Computed example of a mutant assay.
Amino acid sequence: MNQSQSLHSKYAIVGAGLMGRLLAVALAQLGAQVNLYDQGGCDARGAAARIAAAMLAPLAESAITEDSVVRMGIHSLPRWKQLIDTLSTPVFFQQDGTLILWHRQDASEAERFTNHLEKNCLHNPQLTLPQKLNSAELRHIEPGVADRFMQGLYLPDEGQLDNRQLLDALLAELNLLKVNCHWNQAVDPEQLRANHQYECVIDCRGNGAKDAWSSSVNSLRGVRGEVVRLYAPEVKLRRPTRLIHPRYPIYIAPKENDVYVVGATEIESDDLSEMSVRSAMELLSAVYTVHSGFAEARILEMATQCRPTLKNNLPEIRVQKDKGLSDLIMINGLYRHGFMISPAVLDSTLELLASGQSNTALELGLSISSNFGKTDSTSSHKASLCA
């Protein structure tokens, strides 16, 4: 989107979670007028992005997700550094790889996992082969776990950021850019379309948009995730660490100031009640097997949230153009990969707003559908959107 076009553009964004904030900041930086609406407060306590580990791990995730999501993750890693550098407030960002560990009894499962990653690297040359670590190499890379594990797997190009720092930094940027933020105000995007104030309305409500996606074959649902935040000054892990286990494969994401985000659970449920005893016991038991220092950790928070997930578990951008109404873009289905892929979704959306098509989406396989017909990585965008 060029600067002259943006200066005369006015947009409404509904939903101020990760995607809504990224878009609002990006459009405002380009000079557009932006109104941002959210049914919650500015602290993003109702957003799925607040309850996340924010790991940027396309190779690790390639074991359980589609190639298109992996490509979006590869695209997004360097973009995160660029996006964070434009913010006035610092955000913790690290690209020091991912460590994979397993106990001796799970060696066969670890071998299958390693073979899967190596196969994925052969299919996608942008991925870097995982490095197998012996005891000495493991001690050099992550000395804190070397007494309990004799081998590991290192994925060198992966990273992470601090999700809560980022949400706060984006909020600060919204204020600096004088974005009109309407907090604690539930708004129907269709009503905003009808008042003709905006060239385009962008729906980033996540699970709040279930009704809007209910008529679609690719309907929207919530998938419950549970995380524990720990203060563990005795641990000193240097990078995100994942444990291969047949029942509860956990991840441990070290943030600044000795804070660790631990999670694993993924439950097909819209339940937002507190964490179950079983989940808490399994997470805490598993994390203790990784490092004994977690025995003296302090539990800062046990939190749950539902990740917005489409039927095929893939993200989608939907375009709606109707005579007499502002154009509508609906973004949803980022599932468990929100932080890993959101810069790719952001770039694709900005291209759509600028020209009605997105080469980035085509290259990465991000699905874009419209009331003019489905478009995907093998076809061209037909709609003229918000141009």
Rank of each mutant, 00 (worst) to 15 (best):
R139Y: 08
I331R: 07
S358I: 02
L353C: 08
S273W: 12
S214T: 05
E256P: 03
K323L: 08
S348R: 02
Y154E: 02
S342N: 07
K382G: 08
P254N: 13
A54F: 01
L237I: 04
C204F: 10
E137I: 10
Q3R: 15
A280E: 11
Y335W: 11
A28K: 14
H337K: 05
R148A: 00
V69E: 05
Y251K: 12
S215W: 14
A212V: 13
P189H: 09
H116T: 13
D258F: 02
K10V: 01
S379R: 15
V179K: 09
M275S: 11
R224F: 10
V345N: 08
V25M: 07
L174D: 00
N2D: 10
S355C: 09
A387V: 12
K132D: 01
S4H: 13
H291R: 14
R298L: 11
A194W: 07
A60H: 11
L385P: 10
S76N: 04
V261K: 06
L99S: 03
T309K: 00
G40K: 05
R193A: 03
Q82R: 15
L22D: 00
K382C: 06
L366S: 01
L237K: 14
I13M: 05
V290W: 07
C121E: 04
S279H: 07
E109W: 03
G324L: 05
G222Y: 08
I329G: 09
G206F: 10
H116S: 08
E301D: 13
S355W: 07
H245M: 00
A107I: 04
K321P: 02
R104P: 01
